[in-house]
């Protein structure tokens, strides 16, 4: 049987799968539909979650998102800071349940864990993909995975010559959808697997995160570009004020972070967050590809830049050739009235 395996992560707070896991399950379902159209091949979609957890919420959504089967493997020895037990738990199940494709979320932990798994399967792994398709090559169905490379100046589409064909996929790129009914096969496995490669957790320090930042889930993003810079950096504060009043989310570009103006948690782009907002407005954003890759899934993109040839104007729906600073001042005057 042809099979796509989705390696799922847990959202510990909700005790349910992470949002990226649902995104990948829906994408796996869509890939299966694509394979059907290309050469009438059907794929079985299996979602797997290995963690130190007895049961999880909202299993119906796993099935309605596209999975045919959900496997929960409980192992009390799995720890967040050490992937060797997680890896062995998965590999132990996988050796009797092989697959053609394995999809992993490209979160920081999984970008470490996924290669630990694929090296042991002696197969390839495409990192941090932003697009997935099946293609026919010499009449064989192959997974083609596209990712930005060279500081996102270049897009590379990569295929794997060996099975399983594996990829890590950036969160927030694909949309989770209800694609079928809530029925599917659920199995729970208890695992006792241990690993002698111990890493001792001495302490866990929570970082100050008083303000709510949710770039990936925000409906409206106001993005500060380096074009807002001035001697006292007042326009970044002003834009934050507008975001507060209009209850929208502020974000920024890498350059703004690199110059120490805003914290990296606000960064949108290759090394920051992705957005699929209903509305994105770029204030003085130049439009570097590494930034735009993470913005282009927004429904409506508005760009303000003094330079009529700014790169961002090639990606936006509405362009304003003008000074974003002046416009910020005017907006503030209007909303304070």
């Amino acid at each position: 049987m042809n099979k796509i395996t989705v390696f799922c992560e847990l959202n510990k707070e909700k005790n349910a799968l992470s949002s990226c896991s649902y995104e990948l399950i829906t994408k796996a379902y869509e890939l299966s539909k694509q394979a059907q159209e290309l050469n009438n091949t059907e794929f079985f979609i299996e979602a797997i979650c290995c963690d130190n957890v007895e049961n999880i919420e909202n299993k119906e959504k796993i099935f309605s998102s596209g999975a045919n089967k959900f496997v929960l493997i409980e192992n009390k020895n799995i720890e967040n800071h050490n992937f060797d037990v997680l890896k062995d738990t998965f590999l132990n199940y996988y050796k009797d349940n092989k697959s053609d494709v394995i999809l992993f979320p490209a979160t920081a932990p999984m970008r470490h864990c996924a290669p630990c798994i694929t090296v042991n399967l002696d197969c390839g792994l495409v990192a941090d993909c932003i697009d997935l398709n099946f293609i026919l090559k010499d009449e064989n169905l192959m997974l083609s995975a596209t990712r930005p490379t060279f500081g996102s100046e270049l897009m590379a589409t990569i295929i794997s010559k060996k099975l399983p064909q594996c990829a890590t996929i950036r969160p927030g790129i694909f949309k989770n959808k209800t694609v079928k009914d809530e029925n599917g096969e659920f199995i729970k496995i208890q695992s006792e697997i241990e690993n002698n490669k111990k890493i001792k957790l001495i302490s866990n320090i929570l970082q100050n995160n008083n303000d709510e930042i949710n770039i990936e889930g925000a409906e409206i993003i106001l993005c500060a570009g380096y074009g807002l810079n001035s001697a006292n950096r007042e326009y970044f504060k002003k834009l934050e004020k507008i975001a507060q009043i209009t209850k929208t989310q502020i974000g920024c570009t890498r350059k703004v972070v690199d110059f120490g103006i805003m914290d990296s948690k606000y960064q949108i782009g290759l090394t920051g967050s992705n957005t699929k907002a209903q509305l994105y407005i770029g204030f003085g954003v130049a439009g570097a590809i590494q930034h735009m890759c993470s913005v282009k899934n927004s429904k409506k993109i508005v760009a303000i830049n003094t330079d009529a040839d700014a790169e961002i104007f090639n990606y936006c729906d509405y362009k304003i050739v003008g000074d974003a600073k002046k416009i910020i001042d005017e907006i503030l005057t209007q909303i304070e009235q």
Binding site: C123, M155, A156, T157, I158, K161
Partner: peptide, 8 residues
């Protein structure tokens, strides 16, 4: 196992 199919 992986190869660049196309780059653009």
């Amino acid at each position: 196992p992986t190869m660049v199919y196309k780059a653009y």
